[in-house]
Write a protein that binds this DNA or RNA. Structure first.
Lengths: 221, 221
DNA sequence: GCATTCTTGTTTGCATGCAAACTCGCATGC
DNA sequence: GCATGCGAGTTTGCATGCAAACAAGAATGC
């Protein structure tokens, strides 16, 4: 997940809300990695002590986490939001629509540079050791991000980021089998071809189908 | 804009974060209506006094406003985010993609009830006094909301809500002329027909075109 | 024995206190 | 005249205080 636009510059920033944002980030990470289990109640004083801050930054980060949909209000305080398989599938559907749309725009707007970058990522991916899970996830992300960036609409990028994730409380959904990886690469190749041909409709259709395939894999687990 | 999912039940709720959420809501309204001008710095103590609360709920609501993209961090504190015409146009593009996608899903999933509701809204709209600006805005919203609801994907609904609005700092973009209203109604009729025919592709295409038309009107102002 | 009220401890929501960071005007030096 | 440095006044970021809401168990009534 890309960081909120309000994240301060990495270095030399005004150190504005340092504690508050760090708490936000640590909690976010803890939730999406599953370290904090779904429905686990979040005790302010507890978190504050563990992170060596007062309750104030903890409370402020709760507001952000709530806005991001990662925690939900309880009668008293907050609890970790539970992401069900159904949630993930619904998200995947939205993402299919959004990323498909982005691919369609990218077909119209991608510069030769964009296309070169995409082709390079794709080539790297083809040469990958199938056992290297990390590299597979990274290059897959890179491919999708590059397509989204080529759509040249920052609002669209935000919207896609906001849908979040292909994980639910820590269990990353992965294209585990070798065939699935081959299928994914074939999809990417088709998408890339459509972008290079500036065929907007094809790019959209193929990206949508590519993500819907992933959604189906999730549903069938 | 629909309220955050974390909004408490209207009555009898646990009165949880009453002040904090009220401040959020009042500020949100003040920003989108333009009462608070773009780039206006937001002084905590000032707002707190005006709203008769302490700085704490003000600060908490800032976190939410920031997450919603309505305020941006300054070197010191926060300022009202400026929505440029360009921002609105980019948003409209995203919305065209999302609502088009929603219409496509709605064509597959709308119940007879959904279709009845939509037809009723459409009929009401046709009989409207063209001078009744409020009713036009309201029924237009109702039509779009009904289509979105028929897509039966709450995440999609959230994503559409999050893109926000057709206003920028208070200036609602309206289909001002009579022709524009007629054109809008003709679009709606076509969309409705596609939904009734369960023609997903047509519903998507027409909804997308309908919103892109609005975007073009915005751009040309 | 079961339900109901009372009691006590926890945890929140909000207010306030305080030091540090920044702003801006003014004075001083060149 | 322009730049640089200093100091008073804001305004923030975070810590802490406090009363009210809630939860859970003990005591009481039936």
């Amino acid at each position: 997940m890309r960081l909120q636009p309000s994240a301060p510059a990495a270095t030399g920033g005004p150190a504005q809300q340092r504690r508050s944002l760090e708490v936000f980030d640590r909690l976010r990470r803890a939730i999406v990695t599953g370290e904090l289990r779904p429905n686990e109640p979040l005790i302010e004083a507890d978190i504050a002590e563990r992170m060596q801050v007062s309750r104030t930054p903890v409370r402020e980060s709760m507001q952000r986490l709530s806005a991001a949909g990662l925690v939900v209000p309880r009668k008293r305080g907050w609890a970790v939001r539970e992401f069900s398989l159904e949630d993930v599938a619904l998200n995947a559907e939205v993402r299919a629509g959004l990323e498909g749309f982005a691919a369609g725009l990218a077909a119209q707007r991608a510069t030769p540079d964009d296309l070169g970058r995409l082709a390079a990522i794709h080539r790297e991916r083809l040469g990958l050791d199938p056992e290297d899970e990390k590299a597979r996830v990274r290059t897959n992300r890179a491919f999708h991000d590059a397509v989204i960036a080529a759509a040249r609409n920052p609002k669209l990028t935000d919207a896609i980021d906001a849908t979040g994730l292909f994980y639910f409380n820590g269990d990353v959904v992965r294209m585990s089998s070798a065939e699935q990886m081959a299928q994914g690469n074939a999809d990417h190749a088709q998408i890339l071809a459509a972008l290079e041909a500036k065929d907007s409709a094809a790019a959209e259709t193929r990206m949508r189908a590519h993500i819907e395939r992933t959604a189906r894999i999730i549903r069938s687990r």
